[in-house]
Design a protein around this nucleic acid. Structure first.
Lengths: 207, 207
DNA sequence: ACCTGAACACCGTTCAAGT
DNA sequence: ACCTGAACACCGTTCAAGT
């Protein structure tokens, strides 16, 4: 298809599109070359090897994610929750990339703009020094961890033996509501907000 | 080396050893066959294909992890933290397997014994019904998510641009202690306990 | 400076053939 | 019932050769 001279940009764009549509496993050098209408080896000249190609891809995504952070809310706690929700949304919009960011150990870099915002809010709530740093990191780990667990859970919808099967039989002896709630699939959005809110309130309050 | 008749058990054991020593990527059917001293195709007869082999491997690990859960402490909150620490320790003892469990969406199954314990503690703290279920799940997500983030962070020790470089320049303008704390690498054990404790206290307290 | 095909060393999996 | 080698369709990467 493309016969204009191959550029690094064109390679990255085609690679990103391939990942977006079919996941990282589908990104092979040979398929990518076919997509671009060039020889496999041309790709190597422009972006190095596969590993470096993936690095470049991740890097460019991470840069894109910074802009979205706009704390909203009347209290520091509310604004922290809003930042957490934004990060979750941004991550979920790039379902394949987030696993790649994770594998490459770039979560810190990715989280940096959000971290700045969190620092401001934590200080506004009256924390400082090491305690403030702990609070920021706790929220950061919470958000990234939650999204990872959640993402994974979606990929394999019914777990064998699903939670359901194991809660019928007297696991929560005299609390059928609890048993039923655990048998139902979790509502991730609700659970996320609930968790972040709880963690944040405890961190901002006493020690 | 091995010339006694090949068994499913022998294949699984050799595969587990290979993963333990060199990680999941090193587990190729051909290397495994070489290790066992058989033809590659014999493996297929005993365990099906590579995917099924990995499934079996993960399944057996998950079974092993249930026994360790023994809640300890004087209050429900303390006992929940103790369960969380146990799960973290168990997961960290199997660094390669946990990623595989995660990829296969078996975290629920893996967490089941711990979940039972958490249910008991949450009820002992006075929660019931859907609220109790939320608390259990929040802790579960927190623990699994934390360990995933932590594991990943260890694999790529210095992130580029590390947190360090970006906190010197007036990021936390008038709090040098905070800036320094964020520039230092996090102490995961401490951060973990701090996070779980905060989350737990908030969940068990008001709504 | 850029692109190419051939070649190498790996994969997982299937299959017909052996005992 | 179990094991085998040959073969197929894929990989990523290197390299000498082209323009």
């Amino acid at each position: 298809m493309a016969r204009s001279p191959l550029t690094r940009e064109a390679v990255l764009a085609a690679a990103a599109e391939l990942v977006r549509r079919h996941g990282p496993a589908a990104l092979t050098m040979r398929k990518l070359a076919a997509e671009l209408g060039t020889a496999v080896t041309s790709i190597y000249w422009h972006v190095g090897n596969r590993e470096q190609l993936l690095d470049a891809l991740v890097e460019r995504t991470v840069r894109d994610m910074g802009g979205a952070v706009r704390p909203a809310g009347r209290t520091p706690a509310e604004r922290i929750v809003s930042v957490a929700r934004t990060m979750r949304r941004e991550l979920r919009e790039r379902p394949h990339l987030i696993a790649m960011v994770h594998e490459r150990g770039l979560t810190d870099r990715m989280f940096l703009p959000a971290q700045r915002a969190l620092v401001a809010e934590v200080r506004a709530a009256g924390l400082s020094g090491a305690r403030a740093a702990d609070a920021v990191r706790a929220v950061q780990f919470q958000v990234v961890g939650f999204v990872l667990v959640e993402r994974n859970r979606e990929r394999s919808p019914v777990q064998s033996p699903g939670e359901g099967e194991l809660w019928e039989p007297a696991a929560a002896p005299d609390d059928p509501d609890l048993a039923r709630a655990l048998a139902r699939p979790a509502d991730p959005e609700r659970l996320f907000v609930l968790s972040v809110r709880a963690l944040t309130e405890a961190l901002l309050a006493g020690g």
